[in-house]
């Protein structure tokens, strides 16, 4: 009983931690705060100003779209591509198709992600779309493997045999049963993958390989204002807190989800 309460509590905290930055990112740009640029690192306004004299609160409200949006967009794209390849590879009866789809990805797997992104950054400087696609590309091999493994597990289960014997349609078996049983591992993976993508996008922007150095993005703000940390801490701490709150919350939720998916089959066998 006590443990279940603890579980719900950590889910609640997780949702809260993720919720705040998401709400700021989604609805922030709609809030009509228009403050003229003032002195750099001044304490004017609620959170003061940054190194360029811009209002920190206003930057925060606008900067979430890129910080979270690029990462989430990249994971969605990675799942659209990798998920499709993985499902096809797992459900095909032709071994050559499976090999042909999976082997090339094995080669891509050990490529350090920041390298791929730096190469892309040379050609398409400061393009949010290019960076998002690069982050998606980096995630495709692992997503494909995960989806394929999960789908193979489900496709070789007795349930599928039974469905086949009842002459269930291909769509019924593959989208109805196999597709649905893949959702569990996918949900558990999404949590960590989105966190990692947020990290990667933030690191890229922090290093100056991504968005332009005057963009209102949270990571760019942290990078630009770090010299003024002692003069005007909020210009760095506020965007940092929002980023950490998001990743911490997602980690908590993913951890709880993993507990659930892992515990259920064990209890079922007992």
């Amino acid at each position: 009983m006590n443990r279940r309460l603890g579980g719900w509590l950590s889910v609640g905290i997780g949702v809260g931690l993720v919720g705040v930055p998401v709400v700021v990112a989604v609805f922030g740009p709609l809030v009509p705060v228009r403050v003229e640029a003032g002195l750099p690192y001044a304490s004017a306004g609620v959170l003061g100003t940054d190194g360029l004299g811009r209002d920190v609160l206003q930057l925060l409200l606008v900067g979430g779209r890129t910080a979270l949006g690029m990462a989430i967009g990249a994971v969605v794209i990675a799942y659209l591509i990798g998920g499709l390849i993985g499902l096809v590879a797992a459900s095909t009866r032709h071994r050559w198709l499976d090999e042909g789809l999976i082997r090339p990805l094995d080669v891509l797997l050990p490529l350090p992600s920041l390298l791929v992104i730096s190469v892309v950054a040379v050609g398409w400087r400061a393009s949010a779309l290019a960076i998002t696609l690069a982050v998606a590309l980096v995630n495709v091999p692992t997503v494909t493997r995960l989806v394929r493994a999960a789908a193979l597990d489900a496709a070789s289960s007795p349930v599928v045999e039974a469905l086949r014997m009842q002459r269930a349609s291909w769509i019924n078996i593959h989208l109805g049963y196999v597709g649905r049983s893949v959702l569990g591992p996918v949900a558990a993976d999404l949590g960590t993958r989105i966190t990692l993508a947020v990290f990667l996008v933030a690191s890229v922007n922090f290093l100056g390989l991504g968005l332009s150095p005057t963009a209102p993005d949270w990571a760019v703000s942290i990078s630009r204002n770090r010299e003024g940390l002692l003069l005007q801490p909020w210009s760095v701490l506020a965007p940092a807190l929002l980023l950490v709150s998001f990743t911490l919350g997602f980690n908590l939720l993913a951890d709880r989800l993993l507990h659930h998916t892992r515990r259920r089959p064990v209890e079922a066998t007992r």
């Binding site: 990571a219 942290i222 950490v244």
Partner: peptide, 11 residues
């Protein structure tokens, strides 16, 4: 592990 390394570094 939820804190980006550049945030740790800056702090």
């Amino acid at each position: 592990s939820a804190i980006p390394d550049f945030v740790i570094a800056v702090l």
